[in-house]
Design a protein around this nucleic acid. Structure first.
Lengths: 139, 139
DNA sequence: CACCGATGCTTGAGTGAGTCAACCATTCCC
DNA sequence: GGGAATGGTTGACTCACTCAAGCATCGGTG
């Protein structure tokens, strides 16, 4: 039996740890690092510039250069100059990239398996709690 | 305003992302990497062997060797041979290590600030939901 | 007791992630 | 047109992490 008096902070830590581990494992099954998978994920909504990706991933632009280069070498993303501003390089996901992404999501069983343990009302409850926790307003 | 129809999976992702980022920032304020802070965290309950740490952190033993070496070089941990089995190296946190750890926890404001937005009953609710999600039994 | 396999850890080599400073190219604006 | 600002890349560097090899120790079996 596990500790009953487990503190909330500890639980959150364990949850994040398990989530990260599962994400890394899922990425690995399709031959990606967690960072690469993360970048790919940010392209699902359409193309983004290198700078936007750096902001998304909270990292240096030069880091994005390397990540994108590795993904491009595998044909998972493509980089094209923006027609309106030739400084900008628009990164977009290729069909092959979408395939890898789908495979990755399929093997990322954490949400389905873990969150699936909760009933629909419980999931709604959790969603509301997370919404409060994540709210942008500090007020 | 943010999307109302935000899916639970997306919220969980955002939560984990924010948590990880906050943890990394907190570690940085005391001059540690996230991995180093994580190792230090696993020594709060007493000394642990290199192998145990590798199992805790889900990584290779040789990785722990390096992490511990860097922490030892800063005087934050100490490695001593186990008297009962001279193959084993027991790693324990030093007083200086505890100081750093305390400082790190103080600047890790995510739990206090974010989870603090919830009322006590809500926190209890969240704790129960997480307990269900984290339960070890697969049944 | 001698041997041999298993265990615990370290070393060395190699890759990826990530940062920083310096550097081109382009764009914006006076 | 000239200069500052912006977007990206390059190079040099450190750390995280993995794998294969190696060394020391422990444990059991003959």
């Amino acid at each position: 039996m596990t500790e009953v008096a487990d503190t909330l902070e500890q639980q959150v830590w364990d949850f994040v740890f398990a989530y990260d581990a599962a994400y890394g494992r899922a990425a690995q099954t399709v031959g990606l690092s967690a960072a690469q998978a993360c970048l790919l994920e940010h392209l699902t909504g359409g193309s983004r510039s290198m700078g936007e990706l750096a902001a998304d991933l909270l990292c240096d632009a030069s880091n994005v250069t390397q990540l994108a280069a590795r993904l491009e070498a595998r044909g998972l993303v493509s980089r094209a100059p923006d027609p309106t501003d030739r400084r900008i390089r628009q990164v977009s996901i290729t069909p092959a990239g979408r395939d890898v992404q789908r495979a990755m999501r399929r093997s990322f069983d954490f949400p389905a398996e873990r969150l699936g343990r909760l009933t629909a009302p419980e999931q709604r409850q959790l969603s509301e709690l997370l919404a409060r926790v994540l709210a942008t307003g500090t007020s």
